[in-house]
């Protein structure tokens, strides 16, 4: 039961409180670049979640059973980014070969994910926070879902901005960033909720 509580806290805090996009600023580029339309936002969000889960499943054992054993901790950065790049490439090939429909929905976003700092961020943060394998997977799931949630909420907001009359200097990116600031402000309201949930 205690274990279950810990997992729930990790999941909710990574979705709502420490949302990767809105409070830790990881993965801002796709957040701003691919959130124009709802279906693209969902595609990108799901693709990021899948890659985060697979990347964590691959990097966690490598950190603890290879790098730590061989005392090569300082190679973490290089090894992780290569693993992520290789995994993303493999996933893209597999999807293209075996499921063209899924490839059309998700695959097109994969090349963008290789250098997405949210994915590398999750894998490194899981190690820094000292999570066990199950905790790491839950935290990755939470971060991915948090990313998806932020993307979906924000694409709704953007379709309204596109219709509105914005002063010239704020057109385009400036108003988008300010709108993102308000979404982020809303998420700040979740602060403290998770810690007190089981009190």
């Amino acid at each position: 039961m205690e274990m279950f509580k810990v997992l729930i806290v990790i999941l909710l805090s990574s979705v709502l409180v420490d949302n990767y996009v809105l409070s830790r600023f990881l993965g801002i580029c796709p957040f701003l670049g691919v959130s124009k339309k709802l279906n693209q936002a969902i595609g990108m969000g799901v693709a990021v979640t899948v890659v985060m889960l697979i990347a964590t499943a691959a990097t966690w054992p490598i950190q603890y059973f290879v790098l730590d054993v061989l005392k090569l901790g300082y190679l973490q950065n290089i090894v992780f980014i290569l693993i992520i790049a290789a995994l993303v490439q493999m996933l893209e090939l597999l999807l293209k070969r075996f499921s063209p429909a899924l490839y059309k929905g998700l695959g097109v976003y994969l090349p963008l994910i290789t250098t997405n700092c949210a994915v590398l961020g999750v894998t490194i943060n899981n190690i820094i926070d000292g999570y066990s394998f199950v905790e790491s997977m839950v935290s990755s799931l939470g971060c991915g879902l948090g990313f998806l949630l932020a993307m979906v909420l924000f694409s709704g907001l953007r379709s309204r901005i596109n219709e509105s009359n914005v002063p010239a200097p704020f057109k385009g990116l400036a108003v988008t960033l300010i709108a993102a600031s308000f979404v982020s402000l809303a998420f700040m309201g979740f602060g403290g909720i998770v810690e007190n949930m089981f009190a």
Binding site: F25, F170, L173, A174, L177, A180, S181, S184, M188
Partner: peptide
């Protein structure tokens, strides 16, 4: 805080 960063960035770009 986080929202302030986005706000200041938006204003600077404007």
């Amino acid at each position: 805080k986080a929202p302030g960063g986005l706000l200041v960035y938006g204003l600077l770009i404007a």
